[in-house]
Amino acid sequence: MNVIDIRNVVKIYNDSEVRVIAINGVSLKVEEGEFMAIVGPSGSGKTTLLNLIGGLDKPTEGEIMIGGINICNLKGSKLIDFRLHNIGFVFQSYNLIPVLTARENVEFIMQMQKVPFKIREKRTIELLEAVGLGDRIDSRPSKLSGGQQQRVAVARALASKPKFILADEPTANLDSKSAENLLDIMLKLNQDENITFVFSTHDARVMKKARRVITIEDGKIINDEKRG
């Protein structure tokens, strides 16, 4: 089953004098359980594509179906609620609320979903243990390394039980060791729990771990390679 089904998507930025065609007719299907990287040179449209899939931005043309729902038709708080319940996000940075501990950051999203306290508490600890932070649950983000912070972000993204997780250059601010470590954790979650990941990256070593790599250039998919 396709969790993501994009059809002929075009995104044109039309502000001021410049007219930028950031995405130029992209169609793409992602199935449940995929571990997919989006690569391409700077300015090729990776972030734009992820934002469109994540419902953070609207396409100029085309349809974006998430779990069978065309999110282009969702507006305002309906769209925000859709994101809350269906999509997990990991950003490059500023993922966490600095005044909350790792545990509270993970719990927070489930609270917004009105998950009962008991379940919330149990799941939070399980998730933080799964990303290897069982011993740091009560640390604030400022007391964690960049890699650890990104792992909390992954745990937080998983907490809402989304259909898939979108990560725009999650390793961009990490050293290679932390980057590899983060990817290993993501991969393990993908293999053990069948969690779907879609992420963008510049990093060749990160790319290597992906089981499907999509290359875009000038807003077009120029290569779609599936591995083992």
């Binding site: 708080s77 319940h85 999203i109």
Partner: peptide, 14 residues
């Protein structure tokens, strides 16, 4: 950035 992130992950306007 933080508020933007919160809205992105699903914190509604209210």
């Amino acid at each position: 950035k933080e508020i933007g992130m919160l809205m992105a992950i699903g914190m509604n306007k209210v």
